[in-house]
Structures are given as C-alpha cells and as structure tokens.
Design a binder for these strands. Structure first.
Lengths: 142, 142
DNA sequence: CTCCAATCGTTGGTGCGTCCAACAATACTG
DNA sequence: CAGTATTGTTGGACGCACCAACGATTGGAG
C-alpha cells in the first residue's frame, strides 16, 4: 500500500494524481524539444493573436509579466520569436513569432495532441467526454 | 478571453485548472494552521501506522526521504511529533505523533473534509461519484 | 569474522508553475 | 505641468516533487 487510506479517494488527491500524471507525460514530451509549458503557451498566444506586447501575452496566456519576460528571453535566444521596441509606445515590446517559431509550434501542437490521447487512454470515448465536461464545471469558479 | 483557444478544453489544461483550484482551496484552508500538505500527510501516516521510521513514512505517504526529514523537522519543532534514535537499529529514527499532533490532525481532517465539499460544490452527487471514478481510472498507471 | 552491499537520515540542489514587490522608463490624465 | 498608470525587468518566494552524495550503521556472503 503506497498511499494513505485517509487521502486516497479524496477528490483533491485524485485530482492531483491525475494531473501529476498528465503533466509528467506532457513535460516528458515537451522536453524532447527542450521546451516547457510556458514556451508553448507564449508561442500559441502569438500564433493566435499576432504580434503582441508582453503584457498582452501575459493576459492571453494567463501568465505573470515577469514570467513572460523570462520565457521570451528563451524563445528569442532560440530564434523562435523576435522582440523589438514598439515605436508607438516605447514602454512596450512588440513580440512576433518567427517562421522557425511557427514550425516549432506545429511540432509542439502535434506532440500535445498525442499527449492528450495518452492521458485519456484508460478511458472510453464516452467516459472521456463525461470527464471533460465535469472538469470544465469544476474549473469554472476559479 | 483569458485563455488560449488552443489550450482550453484540452484534458491536460482542464486537469491542471481543476487541480489548481482544488489545491488553492486546500492550501488556503491549511495555511490557517500554518501547515502544508506534507505536514498533513506525515501526521496522517503516523496516526494510521503508529510510530515509524522516516523511510517507512516516506513510503506510506509517497514522499521523498529528504522531504520527510524537512517535514519532521517542522512537526517536531511544533511539538506535534517526537523523533528519537531507534535503539534497535541506530540508522533509524522512531517518529511518533504526540497528543498535540493528534489534536491538530483532527482539526486538519475536518478542514480537509470541508475542502472536498467546496471543491465538488459545482457538481451534483451523481456527477461527483462519476468524476471520482473516472479520475481514479486516470490515476492508475502512475 | 571480515568485507561488501544495502539501508537510513541528512544536506543541498534542480525543476516547474505560480505569484509578488520593487524599480526605471514611458505614457496618459487632469 | 503634476501626478497616476502601464510596461518591462529583476530578484525573490512558495509548494510539491525529484535526485545525488555523504557518513553512519546494519546485514549477508564468503
């Protein structure tokens, strides 16, 4: 027995276990590209909304501004995004995804899709739909 | 729109959101006692199995030995557990929960139960049962 | 009985995701 | 113009989970 009777079966425990497993699969898959969740989220935000300020990226991707800064430091050093001062508002940077960034994002997208499938693998199609619906209900009220 | 179309609805995202919400409720509730999840898990392990070595606690509670050490440092300094060298095997410590520890655990147990309810509050009884069952399936294969 | 392998506790470090406080530079408002 | 707000950056923190190394100790193989 590897876990406590008092804890096993508790919703908070089951949620954290299931999430831990999903995140492990995800970060494993992403690590093959030397990338973390933050990198993907920023790339996806840029692909979706086009060139944006870092504050806008943070808002869209649900990240703190300071974390956006660090993440873009990485992405820029890898040539996946460019960061230039906004001439119209010199407080802002205009961050844009590069061709290499789009290509990498495409790979990450495919990887992400595979991970979703691996995560849900123990469930039938019916169960998957039910689970997602219930999780969505649980998520509202953040 | 606060989140990415590409991410919302994805199982990994929903899981992490739902889990984040649950953990936030939990750590909020525990923080009123100045306690974290590790403290609860160690106290619960000791209450369940009686005086144990730190290695046994780690095994039962699913924690790394090093984290057990740090957690017991805290609990001992708060008077919730005692740690004495095992005369029968001087590599081991025998860790025991104190009366104060039992009392604290009782409070934490009640708190934990309230949190479970708060987490599941958006769901009907039927939905709760279904969710727990599906999460359990997902958790297997850790 | 000796030597080697295994175990225990401890220290110190890594990683990820999340969050906060402070600061200088710049923009906007009254 | 004065004061307020926003932006990016830096540096730090937290919680949970891991890992590597070390000395001390024990147990087993020969």
């Amino acid at each position: 027995m590897s876990v406590l009777d008092r804890v096993v079966g508790r919703p908070t425990w089951l949620l954290s276990r299931a999430n831990a497993r999903a995140q492990a699969l995800l970060s494993d898959a992403f690590s093959e590209f030397g990338v973390r969740g933050y990198h993907f989220r920023v790339l996806a935000a840029l692909d979706q909304d086009g060139p944006s300020s870092q504050a806008a990226i943070g808002h869209i991707a649900g990240m703190d501004r300071s974390d956006v800064t660090a993440t873009i430091d990485n992405l820029a050093s890898w040539g996946l995004v460019t960061r230039v001062l906004d001439p119209a508002d010199r407080r802002r940077n205009v961050v844009s995804i590069t061709d290499a960034g789009v290509a990498r994002l495409k790979e990450l997208d495919a990887t992400l899709a595979r991970v979703q499938d691996a995560v849900l693998q123990p469930l039938t199609a019916q169960e998957r739909a039910t689970l997602l619906q219930l999780l969505a209900k649980l998520g509202r009220g953040f």
